Simulated scan of single mutants.
Amino acid sequence: MTGTAIVVGAGVGGLATAIGLRRAGWLVTVLERRTEVERYGTAFALTPAAQDALEELGVGAAVRRRAVPYRDARIRRPDGRVLARLPLDRVEKKAGKPELLLSRPYLIDALLAGLESFGDVPVKLGEPVAGVADVRAGHDLLVGADGIRSVVRQDCFGGAAGPVPIGSVAWIGIADFESGLHGETWGRGRFFGLTPVEPGRTNWYAAVPDGTTAADLPGLFEGWHDPIPRILGTTDPACWLRYEMRHLYPALPSFVHDGRTALVGDAAHAMTPNLGQGACTAILDAGALTRAVVRHGRTGLAAALRDYDRERRRTAQRTAFASRTLHRFVSTERTGLRDGLARLLPG
């Protein structure tokens, strides 16, 4: 084995990092504070770059079997009038493959299967981490993949950054029919999104002011174009998921610490979901960290972590900033200016 690593967190970023390090010959252990790996959630968008990273991890085929292409999406007003078309065709033309959408449980299962194929990577559930020193003892590398409330980040950087609410809450769910249209509909201070997720089903999400309850939701979208009221009227509110929209603020000065610790995913750069890039950035973090470790080996770990930080920090933080800025733009009360600018977007 090249070295030993402990990965804290069994979400997308943690599992992807564990696979990458194990494929590089490292002995890896994953710790997860929950008593089971979380499979909640609806659809993830996977950019071509994230798809390439998953191929490098050996799980690309498993992901493609369950994913659906995302090729047509529009931005609309509540009355259904189209404001703009998302440039998904240009993304596909440039990369030679379309963006994909995949149910979060399927991605988690693909990553777990990829990890289990090695037969020697324990995923220890119900293992909360209180601090860095004790858990890192006996290991060369510690990876903090423990989410927006990361204990590893707190132990390394103190209160330098933390989760900050942005005043909005998202409700998400799955409708058991195909909507026939996809994209986002922008209203005053709220918006509603629709994406494919698998044949015969539609992923939906609604971003509304904080404090909005499930009972309030249908009234906020009453009179909006079909199928939005139909989705809210026919799906079971008990199956809806509530997500407080937060981001990590301020941006961290580094994704690495003391030459032996690295942060990936939400622990490093938690962002609002507006660009749909949270999972993609975590996967790209995993790929970049693995490549850096392979280049430098166990004895050059500090240099590897510096390379990882140089490759990923500014890029990921720019994505997080862009996502937060987009949320402000989309959820504004000044809809006339916003809609006018939206019409200028290249489609």
Rank of each mutant, 00 (worst) to 15 (best):
M271E: 15
A206D: 13
L241G: 05
A282Y: 02
Y308M: 00
W240N: 06
H225D: 12
A316L: 02
G193D: 07
R306M: 14
A304D: 11
A292D: 11
A282K: 02
A268C: 01
G189H: 09
G278Q: 00
L301W: 00
P227H: 15
L305G: 08
I231G: 09
W186P: 01
T281I: 12
R291Q: 12
V264R: 13
A262R: 02
A238H: 12
Q277Y: 08
A270G: 15
L248D: 14
T315A: 11
W224R: 08
R188Y: 14
Q277H: 03
G223P: 14
F221Y: 04
A270L: 04
G219M: 07
R295W: 09
A267D: 03
L263I: 06
G259W: 01
T281V: 14
V256D: 03
L263N: 08
P209G: 13
V294H: 14
G278M: 01
D210T: 06
V293H: 04
P196I: 13
G223I: 05
G193K: 06
D258N: 11
T315F: 14
F192A: 14
T235P: 07
P199A: 15
I228H: 07
D216N: 01
A262K: 06
L217D: 05
D307A: 12
G265Q: 11
L263R: 01
L263G: 00
T261V: 15
T213S: 10
P229F: 03
L252V: 00
C239M: 03
D309W: 01
D285T: 03
G211H: 03
G189A: 08
V264T: 11
F191L: 15
D266M: 07
R190T: 14
E244F: 09
L284A: 02
P209H: 12
H269L: 08
P253E: 08
E222D: 10
L275M: 07
D309H: 11
R246S: 15
P253W: 01
A286S: 09
T202M: 02
F192P: 03
G287C: 05
R201E: 08
H247N: 02
E311G: 05
A251I: 04
A238E: 14
A288S: 12
D309Y: 00
G187N: 04
P229Y: 12
E311Q: 14
R310I: 13
L284T: 04
Q277V: 00
Y243H: 15
F191V: 10
S254Y: 11
L248C: 12
